Computed example of a mutant assay.
Amino acid sequence: MLKTLGRLAIASACVLSATMPAHAHFQLAYTPDVNVTKAGDQPVKLIFWHPFENGHVMDMAEPLEFYAVNRGEKIDLKSTLSPITFTGIANTAAAFDATLTLRRSGDYVMVVVPAPYYEESEDIFIQQITKSYVNRNEIPTDWMEPQGLKTEILPLNRPTNIIAGSTFTGRVLSEGQPVVGVEVEIEYMAAEPDMASNTPKGPTASPMPGGAVVAISDQNGYFTFGVPKAGFWGFAALGSGPDKEFQGKELSQDAVLWVRAYDVK
């Protein structure tokens, strides 16, 4: 089995359907506009959710860290956090509003290091260290740089303007080193959050039959996915981080990355 997975990974990090249920939790650091021209404040929502199925929302504790990086400068955003209640179709849960202030041109890499979340159904903790991106004035500055996180996905395609129908390649890192053979869960944000009402908008897609869509990182930590549809796509490298235990229980320390795809018009 391991040899088979290795061959699949080395060939092209093929996309697979999971053979067993995956938890499909995804940490969001969401703002609807990721390519902007004007300086000013961008509203952001931090939600721990199942966005592909527009499903269950998990209570989110205050993040351990929340910041942005622009031109290599770290900008603390924790002071902008404001608790909210996000109401999904299945339940309500604690989430956060925040503000990203854009001043200089270039990339703003938003980083969320959440507190570990206890998933009672699996009797494990989950910590999804998340990156998402906003760009001002189409000037690339930071998107291609690792941020020195415990675990992260390094994008090899500019994450704010992926072409729908093309491919996206990422590299899974743990403490700066590539992670071999890790499962990368792939999620479409089928229902984007409504910024005013703290509810999901109408879904534009349905979850895939057969369970979660998964890619396997190759011997150098790379994976590739063909992006079929415009919108926000999330990638979660499950258990890719170095920390494996929290409060005496198993910890899945995941790296999450969000990108935005567009149709060519």
Results as ranks from 00 to 15, higher is better:
L8S: 07
I10G: 08
A13H: 09
V15F: 05
V15E: 09
V15M: 11
P21R: 10
H25W: 14
H25Q: 14
F26V: 02
Q27V: 00
T31Q: 09
V34R: 15
V36N: 02
T37N: 14
K38S: 13
A39D: 08
A39L: 08
G40Q: 04
K45D: 05
H50D: 00
P51L: 04
E53N: 11
G55A: 10
H56S: 08
M58I: 01
M60C: 09
M60R: 09
A61E: 15
L64C: 06
F66G: 06
Y67S: 05
N70T: 04
R71N: 15
G72T: 08
G72Q: 08
L77D: 02
L81W: 00
L81G: 01
T85Q: 08
F86R: 02
G88F: 07
G88I: 04
A90D: 15
A94P: 08
A94F: 12
A94W: 07
A95C: 00
A95M: 03
D97K: 05
D97T: 06
A98N: 03
T99W: 04
L100S: 05
T101I: 07
R103T: 15
R104H: 15
R104F: 12
S105R: 13
S105L: 10
S105E: 14
V109Q: 11
M110H: 09
V112S: 07
V113R: 03
A115C: 09
P116C: 11
P116Y: 10
